[in-house]
Amino acid sequence: MKKYPDISEIIKQKEQHRRVLAALPFEQKIEIVFKLRERREFIKSGRVISNSKKPKTESG
């Protein structure tokens, strides 16, 4: 039988992260909501970052 990894620790950490987010001050939560909204609008716009517009790194 195939053995799968135990991800209970990852799930526990996700749950902990959600609790941390829930405990943030309201103002900070609303800032996150606005950022999520911006991200949604960006995805909806269908814009893509072309390779030519990517900032050049030192190596290339």
């Binding site: 609790r19 987010l21 829930a22 943030l24 939560k29 609303i30 909501v33 999520l36």
Partner: peptide, 8 residues
């Protein structure tokens, strides 16, 4: 969101 984690 006031009571929970933020969502879109």
């Amino acid at each position: 969101i006031y009571y929970l984690e933020p969502f879109d």
